[in-house]
Nucleic acid binder design. Sequence first.
RNA 1: GUGGCUAUAGCUCAGUUGGCAGAGCGCCUGACUGUGGAUCAGGUGGUCGAGGGUUCAAAUCCCUCUAGCCACCCCA
Length: 419
Amino acid sequence: MYQKIKGTEDIYGSEMKYWYWIENKAREVAIRYGYEEIRTPIFEDTKLFVRSVGEDTDIVQKEMYTFEDKAGRSITLRPEGTAPVVRAFVENGMITHGFPQKYFYIGPMFRYEKPQSGRQRQFHQFGAEIFGSYSPIADAELILFMDRFLKEIGLIDYEIQINTLGDSEDRARYREALKEYYSKHLDNLCDDCKARFERNVLRLLDCKVDVKYVENAPKITDFLGDGAREHYQKLKRFLEQNGVQFVENPRLVRGLDYYNRTVFEVHHKRLGAMSAIAGGGRYDNLIKEIGGKEVPALGFAAGIERLILSLKAENVEVDEIGRNIVYVTYMGGDDVKIEALKLAEQLRKAGIPTGLDLMERSITAQLKHAARLRAKYCVIIGEEELERDVVIVKNMETGEQVEFEKSFVASGLKDMINE
RNA sequence: GUGGCUAUAGCUCAGUUGGCAGAGCGCCUGACUGUGGAUCAGGUGGUCGAGGGUUCAAAUCCCUCUAGCCACCCCA
């Protein structure tokens, strides 16, 4: 027997309503905020991700699905959504369309990680990007949009954390200071932190073991230049004045290298270790970095699987996916079956979701099946009705039955459904 | 990648010191043959995750692998 690949999921049945719910809300809210959908390929040139996400990041170091195609090109299944959108923006000359530009995407991402609940190797993200604005009003609007989306899918129990990483010069000075500070304690640090010290000092702030050193470590806020400081203060004020609940987390460092200034993460309080349901920030240098002009940008991405876990944790009721409202049942020979097919077709043409027995079961079994599908009405036709050009319409809630002349069934049912 | 727990029917799970593989739910059929959800009766359904080993005998004990879950790592 074949088994699905580790870390992948078949999505069907009672799970599907959550996907419809989130995807529909995502599209609806994004369009309300003036975002256009963009669909980029699922794989890209490996170099795009190495360059944008960062050579030293975990994603590039150990999590990418990279392979050679038949012509020897190095291809990578996208581990995140921003780099492809930026590539498309540059490659298609979208800069000529004027600023700001706002795009959203929904689709699968791939990272080779050890799976557990809320972490798959193929997972799905809803993300959004804004191109062109340096202003903190853009940061504020993006976070408002994300917050609005989370609220409208029904979530309450989450926390938005924000931080600033300053500009690259600020960060360089800060890194120096951190190195100096930690070099004194290097022997006492955990093994992970010793490695981080070499690879990425900022990550030391994330450590849950060496908490006592983190507390006394220098803070980025003391190293900010005027521009970054002002940007951060304005953003906080804009958010506060617009009723966005957030907390500052000076230790918030993100796993992708392209961020500067604003970064944020959203954590759901009822999830376990995989509590980050969304995250993002500003990346003013990325577009230039991968060969475009200097265009400021920012964005966020939310993990759909984790949103679903959050919805379930909060017992949010989501819309059921519509099923058959009407079910056509019949008893008799081929003449009756032909008529049943015609009837079902007529109803469907009229826009009514209609089921039809395909199993040639007894009328009892057909009605039983229709009841189980929670059809509101059954159309019943037999030899008798066929001869008289009528059908029976049965209300499945009340049990009432009425006869309809065949040509009026569709309009009659429509009226009954809409009342 | 490291450590721990787990894997039995479509789903949730029971299966004692090794001795004929079970229940509930679901699904199907029927309850005087042209009328549904309740009830009742019957039925369908398992390579006991895979492979090997020990044994007269393995779902049960041992080994390897695979997958899932939890924590770490990191992130969506």
